[in-house]
């Protein structure tokens, strides 16, 4: 900054080249000034931790997270031979597969229902969006009661109907599905709201002219609603996708990664490795691996998905 001052005060004769250069520099500094808040915040909370994580992933650490032994790529290689990590990888992909389409389909259905102009529809819109106001912790506690093996409502209903009760959170066959169901429920509010907003912003005249042409309801849905909603859908899919990969709260509350590591999603596995086993090196390697996976999948999604998106 002092250099700028020197250049400016020394400048006496008019030199076009210098003037342009000076202007560019000032413009650059001005731009940086405006960017400064986000640059500072990003470096403090994202870039520095990212760099630190990459650094740690090449080390073994002591209990307080200070690196002790340099091991190179070993932490990464160990990931792919560890049966527990491979299992958590599988669980994560399954979880994404259950929750993303589940959330999108259910909330799309609800949004289309709530988009109808009926008396008292406001009540339903509020109701459908209400899960947005419930924290993950509160929702998990609520679902934990529903899933309780003996006194939970779900099992009581099953028994009343003459079925065997299910060990929702203790049976390895069911646990991931149970956590997925509660996650879909938690996600509904937000996705519903965004999709309803998307539906509301579609121009009425499109439907009017389709009506005049005699198009059926489902034809309109397929040919008008979905294409016009595609930017919203794309946004919602990307966000739920990334959220699903980063799920932590409900796992910690409902299953703690069990039974038999069946619901040990990667983020929970990172938490366990770092803050319960105090192995910050392997945990960092897992974190970097997750970062790369999400990055790649998001890129692929943008490449493939964006072609189908119709912007007005």
């Amino acid at each position: 900054m002092k250099d700028t001052a020197v250049i400016l005060s020394d400048e006496k004769q008019i030199d076009v080249f210098k003037a342009v250069k000076k202007q560019k520099l000032v413009r650059f500094l001005k731009g940086m000034l405006f960017l400064m808040p986000s640059i500072v915040l990003f470096s403090l909370f994202l870039f520095y931790p990212l760099g630190r994580t990459i650094y740690l992933s090449f080390f073994l650490t002591d209990g307080s997270g200070d690196p002790t032994v340099f091991v190179g790529w070993e932490n990464y290689l160990n990931l792919f031979t560890s049966p527990i990590f491979l299992k958590s990888l599988r669980a994560t992909f399954l979880f994404v597969l259950y929750t993303v389409p589940g959330t999108i389909l259910v909330s799309l259905f609800l949004a289309i229902l709530a988009n109808e102009k009926l008396k008292g529809i406001g009540i339903f819109r509020t109701m459908y969006a209400s899960t947005m106001g419930i924290s993950v912790a509160a929702a998990s506690v609520f679902w934990m009661f529903l899933f309780h093996p003996t006194i939970g409502w779900l099992n009581q209903i099953l028994q009343a109907l003459g079925f065997n009760s299910i060990g929702w959170l203790t049976d390895p066959q069911w646990a991931l599905l149970a956590v997925s169901i509660s996650t879909i429920w938690m996600n509904l509010g937000f996705t519903f709201l965004i999709m309803l907003g998307g539906l509301q912003s579609i121009d009425r005249y499109l439907y009017e002219s389709a009506d005049i042409d005699g198009a059926s309801y489902f034809y309109q849905l397929r040919r008008i609603t979905l294409p016009m909603l595609s930017p919203t859908l794309f946004f919602v899919i990307t966000v739920t996708f990334i959220n699903a990969f980063q799920t932590f709260g409900q796992i910690d509350m409902l299953t703690r990664g069990g039974p038999q590591n069946e619901t040990q999603l990667i983020v929970y596995s990172i938490y366990q490795e770092a803050f319960m086993n105090y192995q910050f090196g392997p945990a960092s390697a897992q974190a970097i691996f997750l970062f790369i996976v999400i990055l790649l999948l998001t890129l692929i999604q943008f490449k493939l998905g964006e072609r189908k998106v119709h912007y007005q």
Partner: peptide, 22 residues
């Protein structure tokens, strides 16, 4: 030993495996 917390989680998931017919 300092890794006993980790050891506990290892035995826990093995016990669960047996509980579920493993």
């Amino acid at each position: 030993m300092d890794m006993i917390p980790e050891a506990r989680r290892i035995t826990e998931s093995a016990l669960e495996t047996v509980y579920n017919g493993g």
